[in-house]
Write a protein that binds this DNA or RNA. Structure first.
Length: 283
DNA sequence: GCCAGCCTGTTG
DNA sequence: CAACAGGCTGGC
């Protein structure tokens, strides 16, 4: 479900509320969802920081030891959360009965909890010893952050060359090429850049790639500004919806007139995903 | 590349 | 009832 702007919005809502809180206990209600191959302790972790990389959230945890001048490696860990399609992280102010699809609960020192809830159960919470999060191969092979300095026009030109036979939409969705773009923002970026989603990446002119680079950053930045897209069930860490669905041009707009030219928006399948585009504006 | 598979829920 | 859903992996 959530793409970069949604995951970033969740990160921001959570860090404000629970940085420096202690996870007193991690309770797992469904064994598949919490992955802990190193048998990391499930209690008394101080939340030092919450970072995002692509669609992953990384919680930097430190053992809550009051006077410990020489912390050992086992006093630190990284908790990686991937929400996949329907995952949510929801703060509860008090301890309540776990919801139907709450699979992992983080009991907090403020008397509440952070609940990992995921209807389709594709998402995962994985615990790693410090620095070992790269053992998750999806994480290890992530491309650059599209809003970061490494995502340059030259990088996108070279990446389009490297994945030249693949559709440009396939490149945008490929997490090894660029981290964090999903189906909504791929379609919206391609509309703004005027590129037909099935165009081979290798055929695009440098001018078009430059425009796409700009539009990818523009769409993601605007979407973060609107706190993400709540198309079906996305909510942030406080249960609030985003607003970027009010600014979508093509995603889920098939049958509607294009706001730019009036041509009917179409829906096709590209790179295995439903794809929305304007046949007049996108070539 | 594509496509099934992982899951449950919603929509047509 | 079938088709589809914001993601990703692994097997051809």
């Amino acid at each position: 479900m959530p793409e970069l702007p949604e995951v970033e919005t969740i990160r921001r809502t959570l860090i404000e509320k629970i940085q420096n809180q202690v996870i007193e206990e991690i309770i797992c209600y469904h064994p598949d969802v919490l992955v802990n191959p190193d048998g990391i302790s499930l209690d008394n972790w101080l939340i030092k920081d919450i970072r995002r990389r692509g669609k992953y959230l990384l919680f930097d945890l430190q053992k809550d030891i009051i006077c410990n001048p020489k912390p050992a490696a086992r006093d630190y860990c990284v908790m990686m959360v991937h929400l996949r399609m329907t995952g949510k992280l929801l703060l509860e102010e008090k301890i309540v009965e776990p919801a139907k699809h709450t699979h992992v609960r983080f009991v907090l020192s403020n008397g509440g909890s952070l609940d990992f809830n995921d209807t389709r159960r594709f998402g995962r919470v994985t615990l790693f010893p410090p620095g070992q999060e790269f053992n998750d191969c999806g994480f290890a092979t992530l491309g650059p952050e599209p809003l970061g300095d490494d995502f340059t026009i030259d990088y996108l030109i070279n990446t389009c060359k490297r994945y030249g036979k693949s559709s440009i939409k396939g490149v945008l969705l490929n997490q090894k090429a660029i981290a964090g773009i999903g189906n909504i923002y791929a379609d919206e970026s391609l509309f703004r850049a005027g590129i037909f989603p099935e165009r081979k990446a290798g055929e695009l002119s440098h001018a078009k790639i430059t425009l796409l680079h700009q539009k990818v950053r523009e769409v993601l930045t605007e979407a973060i500004g609107h706190r993400g897209t709540s198309f079906r069930d996305y909510v942030d860490g406080l249960g609030n919806k985003g607003f970027f669905q009010l600014h979508l041009a093509v995603y889920q707009k098939d049958g509607d007139p294009c706001l730019a030219c009036g041509t009917t928006i179409e829906k096709i399948k590209v790179a295995g995903r439903s794809t929305h585009f304007c046949p007049h504006c996108q070539k």
